[in-house]
Design a protein around this nucleic acid. Structure first.
Lengths: 189, 189
DNA sequence: AACAACGCTTGCCAAATGACAGGAAATGCG
DNA sequence: CGCATTTCCTGTCATTTGGCAAGCGTTGTT
């Protein structure tokens, strides 16, 4: 699964993918387990195979705010902490039992150095993440909370299924009360 | 100014910066002039020296939505279009007369290839942009419109000064009516 | 089994925001 | 200069959302 993922951008051949994938180590997480805790440096680049996870931060009042959800086939990491080697302001936690494989910063950087095609891949992933975030921002500005909920439900039903309502609500930028009402309304149809 | 910018991450020495800067070409834009139009491929990596600019997209109802503001000392480009060589969904336009210097995708890529330290710099810029966008998203979720306005006013007063109120409002995720009222309230203090 | 913690819903009311429309001031252009 | 356009403010009213609190079922723990 990781090898197919590496090949998707077209920068990496099947043989190269196999070679690169060999540097990853299998990793499992139990439900509620943290991959990264606030204040630590994110040293694990995780390719998630099964299960789902979330990233969250605390606002100034101490409420936790979900900043991202992840499902199988995605890369899970806090970009700034990982690449700048700085303490993370975010936490990353498993919403369900998870499986995947990881590689450390040092190993990844070694591969980037040795293999230009993998470096290209890494850049493409960064650019993709950037574009996704921009899309989410535009969605946040231009659509209603109900529309955002419907979109999330359509794009990642497993998230809505496994994450507590409160968690989903903070991701959508609303309170759990509002999401509960939105859900009720969408049932009426 | 560009040279100082290149040195700020610590990856690039003064001599290297001078060398790299020599590949950029001076560029000016008149007020209202477009650097990039929707549907075109963003081929110009612009380092903005003076003036301010904005990026915007259209929502499904045809309203324009400001997705970003830029001021002197910042790099201006649409990341996904530039790096993926795909048509942009965004427009980038000068809010005031601007000066800066540009480099094309081909040239930039050539430099990335030839100079590992500049490649590192490029990655650091991407990571920084990513982190900024994440911060803005968190701000959008956790703060009120009035607080976001105050923050923008503090961080980039020249933007608020030069951009029409409607443009600033869409950036903040509210209507021009609301921003007008927020402004009125903040004057009362 | 008993209890606490969590997760979700709901009612009530207040605050924030949007939609729409009108009008004044500033700006741009022929 | 004079006209059209843009920009901004404001009033009214509807809608959305939040804050708060109560209730209740589920889950987890001892």
């Amino acid at each position: 699964m990781l090898q197919r993922f590496l090949q998707q951008t077209g920068f990496i051949t099947a043989a190269q993918a196999e070679d690169i994938a060999a540097h990853f180590a299998a990793r499992t997480l139990s439900r509620h387990e943290f991959l990264l805790r606030e204040g630590n440096i994110n040293d694990a680049y995780l390719f998630l195979e099964t299960g789902c996870m979330r990233a969250f931060a605390y606002d100034t009042d101490g409420n936790d705010v979900t900043t991202g959800f992840y499902t199988g086939g995605q890369v899970v990491l806090e970009v700034a902490s990982f690449f700048n080697r700085t303490p993370s302001q975010e936490n990353i936690q498993a919403l369900t039992d998870c499986t995947g494989c990881t590689i450390t910063y040092a190993q990844l950087n070694g591969l980037f150095h040795a293999r230009p095609e993998f470096r290209e891949f890494g850049r493409a992933m960064l650019v993709r993440g950037f574009a996704n975030l921009k899309g989410r921002m535009l969605e946040m500005i231009t659509t209603t909370a109900a529309e955002r909920y419907e979109a999330l439900l359509k794009a990642s039903p497993e998230i809505v299924q496994h994450a507590p309502l409160k968690t989903v609500a903070s991701y959508l930028g609303i309170t759990d009360t509002s999401l509960s009402r939105i859900r009720k309304e969408s049932l009426r149809k």
